[in-house]
């Protein structure tokens, strides 16, 4: 284990503590006593019921969702950049987020036939939308037994536009203008719908993604050298590409379903991490996970704090804080890719 990763883990722990205790409604000591009460399974005096709900049922699931979503975006961003061997890649590059958004809009604004809309929930609709998009992209790029990265990227951009247009069409022609607001908030990426039960699917998906990528760390290093030399190193390039696409759609689909499309985390974090720990995946992946998690947690803390009593979609904050930082990093560091 690298000292950077240990440092990041410690930072993540304290960030969660700060996140659940920050805010006017509950004092720091009260927040800690709520946590202590739950961690010790009810030891000590029962905390104030309002503080208990705020800390344990609102802030903590929200902080954990921020960690899972940020971490998931971090590792999938790394994987996508490796897949297309291009530093501009990010988790949404294959049109997954646009597809998920279109699916969610269709569901939310009541355009699905009643039979279907009764059977699914918004996350399921989002996931199905994301899967649709990736299947189209994949079928275009994956012909003739060889997955062309160029076709993958172009098809991804095209499908993203198509799905974006579809979402806009759905939202603008919606018979219920009031619901538009809710969709808009979600479209910009927000963690405000976090509950304990909403954590289950993203956690499972991100865990599967993380473990699989760690297992594949060595072949992924090989992929950075290019298809042909990776092949000569004995890396099963085509299968790895396919596995990466499946993992990306699984993880981003479940993330978008839980929190909307939060931009820039998956793009910025892997870059920042590589400039610190180097390019080997055994280091980049865990570091990207923790750095993405901590970054999103802090971004959400800012989103919560900017407007008293009200909130902003966290996607706005990740762009506002993340992009200048990214540009600075690009200018300062002299790191190479691959």
């Amino acid at each position: 284990m690298n000292r950077w990763i240990i440092g990041l883990l410690v930072l993540a722990f304290f960030s969660v503590i700060i996140s659940v205790s920050a805010g006017d409604e509950v004092s720091f000591s009260e927040a800690l006593s709520v946590l202590w009460h739950h961690i010790t399974f009810g030891y000590g005096i029962a905390p104030d019921p309002i503080a208990d709900r705020i800390v344990w049922q609102l802030r903590l699931p929200r902080a954990l969702l921020a960690l899972i979503v940020g971490g998931g975006l971090g590792i999938i961003g790394t994987a996508m950049q490796t897949l297309v061997r291009n530093p501009l890649a990010e988790p949404y590059i294959l049109g997954i987020s646009s597809g998920a958004t279109a699916g969610a809009s269709l569901f939310y604004l009541g355009f699905l036939p009643p039979l279907i809309s009764k059977a699914v929930s918004m996350p399921v609709a989002a996931f199905a939308g994301g899967l649709c998009a990736i299947l189209i992209v994949y079928s275009v790029a994956g012909g003739r037994g060889h997955l062309s990265v160029t076709r993958l990227l172009l098809a991804g951009v095209a499908v993203a536009s198509l799905m974006g247009a579809l979402s806009s069409f759905i939202t603008l022609s919606s018979p219920e203008p009031d619901k538009l607001r809710s969709v808009l908030f979600w479209l910009l990426g927000s963690l405000h719908l976090a509950t304990w039960s909403a954590l289950i699917w993203p956690s499972i998906a991100v865990l599967i993604g993380f473990v699989s990528l760690i297992v594949l760390a060595r072949p992924l290093d090989g992929m950075l050298t290019g298809d042909e030399s990776a092949h000569s190193l004995g890396v099963p390039v085509e299968s790895i590409k396919r596995i990466l696409i499946v993992l990306a759609s699984l993880v981003t689909g479940s993330i978008v379903a839980a929190s909307g499309a939060i931009g820039f985390v998956g793009l910025i974090v892997p870059h920042a991490v590589r400039s610190i720990v180097g390019v080997t995946h055994r280091r980049v992946l865990p570091a990207s996970f923790i750095a993405g998690a901590v970054f999103l947690l802090w971004a959400d803390l800012v989103a919560r704090a900017l407007l008293p009593g009200a909130q902003l979609p966290v996607g706005i904050v990740t762009a506002l804080c993340g992009v200048p930082f990214f540009l600075l990093l690009l200018r300062r560091s002299s790191y190479g890719f691959g």
Binding site: G23, D24, E25, V26, I50, R53, I54, L58, R59, F185, H192, R304, L307, G309, A310, Q311, L312
Partner: peptide, 13 residues
């Protein structure tokens, strides 16, 4: 804010 999106915390407290 003129059109705030409230937090659950705000309503609770």
């Amino acid at each position: 804010t003129r059109a705030p999106v409230l937090t659950d915390e705000f309503v609770l407290s």
